[in-house]
């Protein structure tokens, strides 16, 4: 009875949670106090420029590195001291995976299948065929794209409750990429899997992510539902004579050569744009996510 209660409590715990994570490499701060929570069944797209700290954040979230401050939790347990029961529920694919290069894909799947009770042998076989990967070729001889596909298959075949992918689509062609996105979307929607993936391809994010987190210079600049992002944020353009009225809480501001200013603003609680939007000559432009991120990250 106790065990049942305990596992029920674990199921309701957040799949991933970070509190105030700070980390530095050689004195340079990569993460400066990141708080992040993933709700069960959500698909969080982590976006940011190269070197923004996405991979470091992901590793800290999974307990693969010891942050200098802050704490990460996986299914309610401290990430650095995860139990085997939690580990079975996780799959993680690093950027450019190169583990077990001395095994063939078939051997790696055979090996890993013993650790995951829900391992889907038929799925793994089907995907190897579909992505035309020779199962008996030693993995050191696969191209980086094939190698990454093998790792994606292995992650999905273990049927995880929490799937964490670091730049999963970078080495995939458009067809394989679409297939992966479809798989991610359906796993989350139907099996209730929670997914975290980092990317810098924004269109992928807009398709499958239910939430978006934008990591910029070691901080999370925004974290909200994908649909809301497009409706809640917009670019406000102010002509030169109104430039002083830029709202103080604007996410970014850029001054143009003619003195005019553009900035990214958010709607307030009553879904209204800031007052500056009503000034003479002011203009509000709805933005696609890509434009929004370029605007903020620049």
């Amino acid at each position: 009875m106790n065990a049942v209660l305990k596992s029920a409590a674990n199921d309701t715990a957040w799949p991933l949670q970070a509190r105030g994570i700070v980390h530095a490499y050689e004195g340079r701060y990569v993460l400066q106090g990141v708080d992040l929570t993933l709700a069960p069944g959500s698909v969080l797209g982590l976006i940011g420029r190269n070197g923004a700290g996405k991979s470091t954040l992901i590793r800290a979230l999974l307990g693969l590195l010891q942050p200098q401050a802050g704490e990460a939790f996986v299914f309610g347990e401290p990430a650095l001291r995860m139990s085997d029961a939690s580990k079975v529920r996780i799959a993680y694919v690093p950027q450019q995976p190169d583990a077990l290069a001395w095994l063939s894909a078939a051997q790696m799947f055979d090996y890993l299948s013993r650790f995951y009770p829900k391992w889907d042998r038929a799925y793994a076989q089907r995907m190897l065929d579909r992505w035309q990967i020779v199962p008996n070729k030693v993995m050191a001889k696969l191209s980086p794209g094939e190698r990454q596909r093998v790792d994606l298959i292995r992650a999905l075949a273990s049927q995880p409750d929490l799937l964490v992918l670091d730049e999963p689509v970078a080495a995939l062609d458009p067809v394989a990429r679409r297939e992966l996105l479809r798989e991610i979307a359906l796993r989350a929607g139907e099996q209730g899997a929670t997914v975290l993936f980092s990317t810098h391809i924004v269109s992928d994010l807009e398709r499958v992510a239910s939430d978006i987190a934008f990591l910029h210079e070691g901080k999370l600049l925004l974290h909200c539902a994908t649909d809301d992002t497009k409706e809640c944020y917009a670019r406000l353009w102010l002509p030169a004579d109104q430039a002083v009225h830029v709202p103080a809480d604007a996410l970014s501001r850029r001054r143009h050569d003619d003195g005019s200013v553009s900035c990214v603003v958010a709607r307030d609680a009553g879904a209204r744009w800031p007052d500056a939007a009503n000034r003479p000559g002011a203009r509000i432009d709805a933005l696609g996510l890509e434009d929004l991120f370029v605007e903020i990250a620049e």
Binding site: R59, L62, L64, K87, V88, A99, F115, Y116
Partner: peptide, 15 residues
């Protein structure tokens, strides 16, 4: 960090 180490850390039963 992209090789065997994350695998070792996340495989159940090897800790």
């Amino acid at each position: 960090v992209t090789g065997e180490l994350p695998l070792l850390a996340l495989l159940p039963g090897l800790g």
